[in-house]
Write a protein that binds this DNA or RNA. Structure first.
Lengths: 193, 193
DNA sequence: GACGTTCCATACCGATCGGTATAGAACGAT
DNA sequence: ATCGTTCTATACCGATCGGTATGGAACGTC
């Protein structure tokens, strides 16, 4: 009952996601959002609550639609394939032609004004979740003899995540996919096995 | 002649530098700046022109006072020492207790609002300058037989800069120096020699 | 000590920020 | 046809953005 909304909420959220991805959280204004999503301010607030809630929904959608490779990569049989698939997956997302450059999470992770402290905390937390899951996967690999006994799973996980974050900066600065692929190949030389 | 200014322009610029370092370009407001620098708005505009000029002066000071290691590292005798010194130098600056976390350049390098496009271009350009200088140094190393004949100096330079940018993200997310040191050690395993 | 100059304090500028109040338009139910 | 509900359009809110105009205070010079 009541008047049906004239826009598709899913399409609108996707548009918001891409704006946040390209311009960061604070770099994207409400006007940017309403223009890009093709809706008015009352529609935005009525449907998505406010800017912060909208960003969190966009972040969730981003993780579901663009970072899914991460969790399937964890299921690869050996640690080296896990690491390679994760790096390749990040680079693919970061350098996809039809996507904005870089990584939404890293783009929003930078130090910003005090007003967005909660967003910053969430972002850092999301990175940590991934990093810890990867560390646990490498611990298992070490137990299974897949990684050397003297290797440090936590350090290796941090290394992979750091390279991924570095490639995100490169990609949002305009680096091409092939160049970043070669980067991944170099980084993988550091990886045991 | 005229009334002497009541503040030290150098101290004020240093304060501005640290604010931009911690909060990025757009995350730092004029009020943040005047508060942190301990001066009034007319003093700021009279002495430094405007926000953008102030940022450029802070950037220049940053490169002189915190990135000087980069250019001296290029003068190290072999490519491996060059690479290691650069990574260590970045990490030192990024994780110095008395400094804000991360790297001013990387913190300002992410995508941000359209208003700061010129700043963004400058930042990307500064990164490219360093990366190209490093690539030239590695080309020399290759000619001198210091790097293998099949190595790609440009790719190696991009790899080192990418790791440095990744460590900046880590450091601005609160990673400690020792952890990031171990990261550098892992990354250096990828480096020839 | 009057003067030109330079700096500082305050108050102000238009524009934009995130967010909302109000009123009308479009529906299903009756 | 009318009513309650839910959407949209417009206009508006106080706060803050980067930047400036104005008026007086502190100097060197004469």
């Amino acid at each position: 009952m009541g008047r049906p909304r004239e826009f598709d909420a899913d399409d609108a959220l996707q548009a918001a996601l891409e704006l946040f991805w390209r311009k960061g959280y604070e770099g994207t204004s409400i006007t940017d959002l309403t223009d890009g999503m093709g809706i008015t301010k009352p529609s935005l607030y009525g449907t998505f609550g406010n800017k912060e809630e909208l960003f969190r929904m966009a972040l969730q959608r981003y993780e579901q639609n663009y970072m899914a490779f991460f969790w399937s990569a964890l299921e690869q049989p050996d640690a080296r394939t896990v690491a390679f698939d994760i790096l390749r997956g990040f680079v693919n997302a970061q350098t996809e032609e039809c996507n904005p450059g870089g990584c939404l999470v890293v783009n929003a992770a930078r130090a910003c004004s005090d007003a967005a402290l909660e967003i910053h905390k969430t972002i850092v937390e999301r990175i940590q979740v991934g990093q810890k899951a990867l560390a646990r996967r490498f611990e298992r690999a070490k137990r299974e003899g897949d990684l050397p006994a003297d290797s440090n799973p936590e350090d290796l996980a941090r290394f992979i995540m750091t390279v991924a974050q570095g490639t995100a900066v490169q990609a949002s600065s305009g680096a091409g996919r092939d160049e970043v692929y070669r980067l991944v190949d170099i980084a993988m030389k550091s990886f045991p096995g």
